[in-house]
Design a binder for these strands. Structure first.
Lengths: 157, 157
DNA sequence: ATGTATGCAAACCATTTGCAATGAC
DNA sequence: GTCATTGCAAATGGTTTGCATACAT
């Protein structure tokens, strides 16, 4: 999936809306971080984002990156993933809506899959006493590479 | 959902199978930890598990708890959850199969829901180059309590 | 007897926090 | 001018690691 100029514009607009609505300040950092995230096609983590921003000669502190990402999550622009322990990863919400994830419990590799039936099933679903924002489906298992390695390891014993 | 004696017996049997198959040792710690986990109806984390074991006068080190849980995950007896950052939670796999999770992004509360259609959709599903072990569906949003609080906070401004 | 598993404590590292300086309003 | 936001550096705390000891095989 690709993001186009219109998508970016509407996300910026959404950010402005959110900041106005919540009485928060429209800082350069917040808009620049969103802009940077829009150039990332897949998942990203805090470190990757900071390196990209530094590479574009825009220095932002770690604390601000954490704050801003949380803000973007609250504004429904970004989605949080925790496939395996340790590192938290993120993804633009509009991208994450197009697929689900296969996660290898052995090597941590994450692969994306589309599933129209599930999207149909989930869309428009309501829950009692809960306003759903987004959902994540993680399918855990062993990827073919790891399965092969494990088989070899066992045979060598 | 309740766990009965038969379920526990079959889980112990599964552990024995796994340990034998992988040439791992059948230690008291491994069986005791599984037994303890079987008494927990909902989610648990490492700290909770250690306190329960200590309460039953069975001292186990943190390292062993981490090792054993990973082993139980690999043996397909336990499932790992990471609803929000920081703490990793776990659940008996046989319990987790009966429901999905609503997660409040504001207060972190987790609520369980059943969804037969989804179970039907997922069961027997195969993926190319990937052996699926289990899946987790997390639905993120705002719970009614937090929604109420947020509305009040906004009105007071 | 051998080598895996455990216990303990120190190390690790992503994330959070406190506070002074900056800048949006 | 006021107060939210940022930057920096230190603190936090769940998880991992290293090594000596214990114990399953």
């Amino acid at each position: 999936m690709n993001i186009n100029r219109n998508d970016i514009a509407s996300m910026q607009q959404r950010l402005t809306e959110y900041l106005t609505d919540q009485n928060l300040r429209k800082t350069t950092e917040r808009y620049t971080i969103l802009e940077c995230i829009c150039t990332i096609k897949g998942h990203f983590d805090v470190e990757m984002l900071q390196k990209m921003l530094d590479g574009a000669n825009f220095h932002v502190s770690r604390a601000t990156i954490y704050n801003t990402i949380e803000l973007l999550v609250n504004a429904s622009l970004v989605v949080r993933h925790q496939f395996s322990s340790q590192i938290v990863q993120y993804e633009l919400k509009c991208i994450s809506e197009t697929h689900h994830h296969l996660v290898c419990t052995h090597c941590g590799a994450v692969c994306e899959i589309k599933n129209k039936e599930l999207a149909t099933l989930m869309n428009g679903r309501r829950f009692p006493k809960f306003s759903a924002e987004y959902y994540s489906l993680y399918i855990y298992g062993i990827c073919s590479k790891c399965k092969f390695k494990l088989r070899q390891k066992k045979n060598n014993k």
